[in-house]
Amino acid sequence: MQLTRITLVLAMAGILSACQSVSTTKGGAVGANRSQNMSALVSSAELEAQANQSYQQLVRDAQARGLLNRDPSQAARVRAIANRLIPQTKVFRDDLGSWKWEVNVLTKNELNAWCMPGGKIMFYSGIIEQLQLTDDEIAAIMGHEMAHALREHSRERASDAATQNLLFSGVSILTGGKYDNAIGVAQEGTKYLWTLPNSREHEAEADRMGVELAARAGYNPQAAVNVWRKMQAKNGGGTPEFMSTHPSAESRIADLTAQIAKVQPLYQAALAEQKTKPVQKTTSTKNKAK
């Protein structure tokens, strides 16, 4: 038993030492370069491969059910917005050469959209139609979701979870389960003192990066505030902020307003550039799903 405990302690020490403090993105105008703790056990390549596999399965299932890009004009509209946003990602990262961006619209009556690691984007028709989104508002939502992928928030959460699980499991084994009740209390405390605040921090980062991506692409960053006001009106009351993985609507709008002031000159510059250049077609997004 003593040898098992020593082995466990050494394994825990080795795994914890494998955590690295990194910043996955450059700061941009909004300063998105916070240090993140990333475990070597959770690799970007692995998450991107898993995301691609899941995304392709979802695409196949949706195609089989006639739910993928059912409205060609709607799909073309969303892809055109993505094609303007994707080139702007270089302000935060210049190492995305392996990303094969894909953008599709799923006919589903939900207020949802997401971007997986590796640039796999899905918009739900429900969020476009129920909120009657303008192009600027679609860009705000898409920029937010792209930012989660650029910042590797899923990898950061997986790294945190792996570290926490290892520590709590190790303590339980080393103490022979004598303090499992106390560990349960500690885990609940970790949820409110670490996990949820970190998730809210991720949401705030995605908001900030999203408005910069939109502004640089020539979309009005003020639309981000409009989106969350629409969401607030649609959802009514919400969970108290300290119990939620998302900031309260009031906190979110206040922070967005401050960030919009920072990126407004970028938006004006993008508009001026658009007036002097002819519109060019791009092929940034994979367009195999018809």
Rank of each mutant, 00 (worst) to 15 (best):
P117N: 07
A206S: 13
I81V: 13
L10K: 09
A147K: 02
P221K: 10
S39D: 00
Y55D: 07
T285I: 07
N198K: 15
I86C: 00
N69E: 04
R151K: 15
A289V: 14
C19M: 08
N83D: 14
A80I: 01
A51R: 02
G189D: 01
C19P: 09
S251N: 11
Y219F: 14
T285V: 15
Q57P: 10
V42W: 00
E201W: 02
H148S: 06
R70P: 08
A289H: 13
Q264W: 12
L111I: 13
Q57V: 14
L131A: 01
I138E: 05
R216A: 10
K286D: 14
E205K: 12
Q222V: 14
I138L: 07
T25K: 02
S244L: 02
N181L: 11
L68Y: 12
L68C: 15
K290T: 01
K277V: 11
P221M: 05
R79I: 00
L266E: 14
A214M: 06
M12T: 13
A11G: 12
V103W: 10
K178W: 06
S248M: 00
G238M: 04
A80N: 12
A158M: 01
G126E: 02
D135P: 06
G184A: 07
G118S: 06
W194V: 15
R151T: 09
G238D: 07
R34N: 07
T134V: 00
N104L: 05
Q53A: 15
T257M: 09
T24M: 14
Q2F: 12
I141F: 05
I15R: 06
G118L: 08
L85Y: 04
G14N: 13
L106Y: 07
R70L: 09
Y267R: 08
P247K: 01
N226H: 07
A158N: 00
K178D: 09
N165Q: 15
L167N: 07
W194D: 14
Q130Y: 00
M38H: 08
T107V: 11
V22P: 05
V225D: 07
S284A: 14
Q274L: 09
N287T: 14
S169Y: 10
V105H: 10
Q88F: 04
V105A: 12
F168M: 12
G118A: 11
R79D: 04
